[in-house]
């Protein structure tokens, strides 16, 4: 239903061709705030089913990049394409979310006044129209789906508890659970293990690897924790001052003199 209305780009020699076979395609994306360039001609291509980790010092533009992909920020220039030809720069947040892009925020944001169960229920993949939401009734199968997710993120015994009363780490898990309920094709995780204990971090890494295993969805993980990045064992992109500094395996980028300079120099 939505596909008819999606703005697409299909110029023969345009970005559509270059974006062929990608799930996410960013080219020459520039964003500036009051003269400060948060993104400076950033280019990035993600293949379907790929797991990618993104690292970079503070202010490198990681969060701004996610804002651009999810429609929160409009780029000054550049192409942002989803699934080869859907132009994301012309859609708003809810349309992009409906399209199949989910996001976990750096600071966990759950609905504090609702219960854990209700948080997941809202995330459940359903018709998002207002009237359909008004007359929505949870089917037995959907209830089971929520129960399964509760199990998976380890919150089964807290289903009736108010989300606001959860610990920081539990909120992170709940948010990941909400992402799972949405059943998205592209997941953007902004520092998913910030504030977690070592055990929780390990479990999160396992969960992410588990999600990436069947290659049905693509994941972009932004993280500072190098142990965690190593545990994911995925291709790493290093951002610096709003553009890509290096790309490759973790060992390769760690050996890159430019990266060393950015992290250790000055």
């Amino acid at each position: 239903m939505l596909d008819d209305a999606m703005p697409t780009i299909d110029m023969p020699a345009g970005p559509g061709v270059l974006a062929a076979g990608s799930i996410l395609y960013l080219d020459g994306v520039t964003v500036s705030f009051d003269g400060f360039r948060a993104l400076n001609s950033l280019s990035l291509v993600l293949a379907p089913g790929e797991l990618r980790t993104i690292v970079g010092p503070n202010g490198a533009g990681k969060t701004t990049m996610m804002d651009v992909i999810t429609g929160k920020t409009r780029p000054d220039k550049g192409d942002v394409l989803f699934d080869q030809n859907i132009d994301l720069t012309r859609l708003d947040e809810s349309a992009i979310a409906t399209l199949g892009i989910g996001r976990k925020f750096q600071k966990p944001t759950v609905f504090e006044h609702l219960s854990v169960f209700e948080n997941l229920e809202l995330a459940l993949k359903t018709n998002r129209s207002t009237l359909a939401t008004l007359f929505f009734r949870l089917s037995g199968q959907q209830a089971e789906q929520i129960a399964a997710t509760l199990q998976r993120v380890g919150l089964a015994d807290k289903a009736r508890q108010q989300a606001g009363s959860l610990s920081h780490g539990q909120k992170q898990w709940l948010e990941i659970g909400m992402l799972l309920m949405q059943d998205q094709r592209l997941l953007l995780l902004d520092e998913p293990v910030a504030g977690m204990t070592d055990a929780e971090t390990e479990a999160t890494a396992e969960l992410i690897l588990d999600l990436a295993r069947d290659k049905t969805r693509s994941l972009v993980v932004v993280e500072h924790d190098m142990e965690f990045v190593r545990a994911l064992g995925a291709k790493v992109t290093v951002l610096h001052e709003g553009s890509v500094l290096a790309e490759g395996s973790l060992d390769a980028v760690q050996a890159n003199p430019k990266v060393v300079e950015v992290y250790l120099g000055r």
Binding site: F33, F36, T64
Partner: peptide
């Protein structure tokens, strides 16, 4: 208007 991330 002031522009920028802080006011978003």
């Amino acid at each position: 208007a002031l522009k920028g991330r802080s006011v978003e």
